[in-house]
Simulated assay, not measured.
Amino acid sequence: MRTRFFQALAAAAFGVALAAPAQAESLKIGALMPMTGDLQAYGEADVTGVQFAVKQINAAGGVNGEEVEIVIADTQTKPQAGVDAAQKLINVDGVHAIVGALSSGVTIPVAKTVTSREGVPQISNASTSPTITKLQDNDFLFRSVPSDAYQGVELAKLVQEKGFSNVSILYVNNDYGQGLADAFAEAFEGEVSASIAFEQGQASYRGELQQAAGGGAEALVLIGYPESGSVILRQSLEGGYLDKFIFTDGMKAPEIIERVGAQFLNGAFGTVPQAKDTEGLRVFREAYTAEYGDLPPKPYYDTAYDAAMVIALAAQKAGSSDPEAIRDNLRDVANAPGETILPGEWQKAVKLLADGQDINYEGASGSVDFDKNGDVPGTIGHWEIQDGKIVDVRVLN
């Protein structure tokens, strides 16, 4: 596992330490987020979700009597940059747990080469690739969002419901894009005339679009992120390739409307992991809007909030900020049985844990019941662009 400067220092001064009263190390959470790059449209909102959880916790007394600290690191939506940022969070900043990353293409290498080896729990609030379910991560990788094994099926049903029988897929060339494209294609009862991977950050996607437009496709299923996705949409329209668009969660951002134009995107639709209208969601919505105003028209700020909350609850139950102790208590605080804890009910949770009672956190994004693989159940929502705005239509499953 990892070594820390302060651990070595404590060992060297062991005799002095014995004379000092014991004090729990304050919990430090890393927010591993895309503040730049292809997913930067989501970074700020997701950081705010973590910050809101920590603000509520600290206002109610903190974890084990100490204030929680957040350290933010930028993945740049790139695997190597994400790995480097995670290593710094753990070995320089000394975080005890990490929320993030967003992109599955970043989360997976971070888990394989950093958090699983260093023994630090990592909860991704947005990585939906089915690959994560069976990843060899020493049980240090969790996620607060459901797998795309569900989203692909629900998207296929929705596309069929909308009357499309022949579509082409363009997907970002990483685990997220490949996994969701495969799940959709397997479930779709119509024809997928082409399924083409693309690389992030290209100046031109005209070659990929020319392939996608062949075979009689009626619409383009675009599985990507706002930066590269906006370029693809503009070039598809300018080149006369395809003008009907179907999206997934990675494209649910108002920035694409600003860059491409509402007149070209009105009627486009997609899917996204979305909570049912539960009591937890209602409590969170009321508190969030009181603090920040309107809810962001983007996903994953709620799952970021939930990830931070369960990390803090696990540390509270463990009576320690030790990373392995946090990992070992995540399922105990997030899964049934136990007294239900809703967003913001920190003092209630602390009292129940102090009394030796079991708790079951039901979050802003719904149930956070971690299974043996660190996955959670979830529901998928249908969203559309109407009159130049993103509108949540309904929960599908």
Score class of each variant (00 low, 15 high):
Gly61Gln: 12
Gly61Tyr: 09
Gly61Leu: 15
Glu66Gly: 12
Glu67Lys: 09
Val71Cys: 11
Val71Glu: 15
Ile72Pro: 13
Ile72Tyr: 11
Ala73Trp: 06
Gln76Gly: 08
Gln76Asn: 11
Thr77Lys: 04
Thr77Asp: 09
Pro79Ile: 02
Gln80Arg: 14
Ala86Thr: 04
Gln87Asp: 11
Leu89Ala: 07
Ile90Val: 14
Ile90Glu: 00
Asn91Gln: 15
His96Gly: 08
Val99His: 05
Leu102Lys: 14
Ser103Leu: 10
Ser104Thr: 12
Ser104Pro: 10
Ser104Asp: 04
Val106Cys: 05
Thr107Ala: 15
Ile108Asn: 06
Pro109Asn: 00
Val110Ala: 01
Ala111Pro: 04
Gln122His: 06
Ile123Leu: 13
Ala126Lys: 03
Ser129Leu: 09
Ser129Cys: 09
Thr131Trp: 06
Lys134Glu: 12
Leu135Phe: 01
Leu135Met: 13
Phe140Cys: 01
Phe142Ala: 07
Phe142Gly: 07
Arg143Trp: 03
Val145Ile: 13
Pro146Phe: 08
Ser147His: 04
Asp148Tyr: 10
Ala149Gly: 04
Tyr150Cys: 00
Leu158Tyr: 09
Val159Gly: 05
Gly163Ala: 08
Phe164His: 12
Phe164Met: 10
Phe164Trp: 10
Ile169Asn: 07
Leu170Phe: 04
Tyr171Pro: 06
Asn174Ala: 12
Asp175Thr: 11
Tyr176Gly: 01
Gly177Asn: 08
Gln178Asn: 08
Ala181Arg: 07
Ala185Ile: 09
